[in-house]
Design a protein around this nucleic acid. Sequence first.
DNA 1: CTAACGTTTGTCCAACCGGTCAAAAATTTG
DNA 2: CAAATTTTTGACCGGTTGGACAAACGTTAG
Lengths: 209, 209
Amino acid sequence: MDTPAPRRTRIQQEKRELILEAALEVFSTNGFRGSTIDQIAEAAGMSKPNLLYYFRRKEDIHETLMQRLLDTWLAPLRELDDIGDPLTELRSYIRRKLEMARDFPRESRLFANEILQGAPRIMPMLEGELKTLVDEKAAVIKGWMRAGKIAHTDPWHLIFSIWATTQHYADFDVQVRAVLGPNRGGDGRFEDAARFLEQLFIDGLKPKT
Amino acid sequence: MDTPAPRRTRIQQEKRELILEAALEVFSTNGFRGSTIDQIAEAAGMSKPNLLYYFRRKEDIHETLMQRLLDTWLAPLRELDDIGDPLTELRSYIRRKLEMARDFPRESRLFANEILQGAPRIMPMLEGELKTLVDEKAAVIKGWMRAGKIAHTDPWHLIFSIWATTQHYADFDVQVRAVLGPNRGGDGRFEDAARFLEQLFIDGLKPKT
DNA sequence: CTAACGTTTGTCCAACCGGTCAAAAATTTG
DNA sequence: CAAATTTTTGACCGGTTGGACAAACGTTAG
């Protein structure tokens, strides 16, 4: 076990949670080096030494945040299942990922920041756990292709393209809103995106006729 | 004019270019706040005060880099033209964007960093120049749809999805390589990506039969 | 009440960082 | 050559940052 059962009182649990919430906000908008302990402490409503009583180092906060993130972040892909209609299965995977971009944009940006900087803190996880999971799901998709249920193509790049298109609405949100303008850039943009992505992945761009 | 003809000697031109090249490397991997003048100076092979002789403030380097970037970054979209077959036109736009992700990954990451942090320095450009250009090209695409040349869908989100999928191979490069592994993550990954994206955007995932 | 334990904070420090400055070194000009 | 100009650097400064520490404060159990 990596975690040697760190006994914590109820108040410690709560304060740690408060700090993590504040840190998510700060880290996701300023990056790791761009964020200061003072900023996080203020966002959490406590003094810097007090924060350092719960997390000894700035990096400990980031690490805890990252570990927790990765669990929930890959949940949608884990759910991708061999049972059920392949196209339906893919459609709901895309929808789930898009909902995560809408509901947890900070988590998405935190992850994007880490990858952009070369993933110095989570590289082993990418090459291990993540690669294993993706390979496994790629095999499932390959099965669907062999069964003639979906078109033959590269399953890995298919997964990449789903990640890219959905996370784009969290990571590049400011750009999306700026380009769409005040009218179309409102809350409806996620429904528009869902409609578009469904059509793109299922039908492509060829005209029906 | 914004640039009041800043008279520069040949040696100044060269040194400034050297600094910008070094700064691109450093900024794109560490972000603006995560980069130090010392890092850039060392990468450029000169002392910090010497660097500050050519660019008075750290932000001036970043600004110059960003201005230069935006010109070349939108060139492929500018080339998207009403002449020629729509599907062919879109295919070559996708190919050009993917080639830029392959050949200029640092520029892509620099841009991604800026957007991730809320685009504090280029927001006016996004709402102005960029929005105008995208709206213009969206109109072109809408024309193709009305003419029955490509399927009806949302042109803006179509453009977003092309940006997202292609830039993914620059911004998330470490993740792509980690997941593909040593075999498939080599130089061939861009050809694989090109093949996949072409199929995705042109044909979708529905089986042929 | 009081001793023990968990929590909070003011103060301090060393390292770092962006930027200045004057003086030295190199280069150009007459 | 020598004067003028441009380029380079070492030393320095004020502000910030991550983190240490001991003292104060609060809470709970005996």
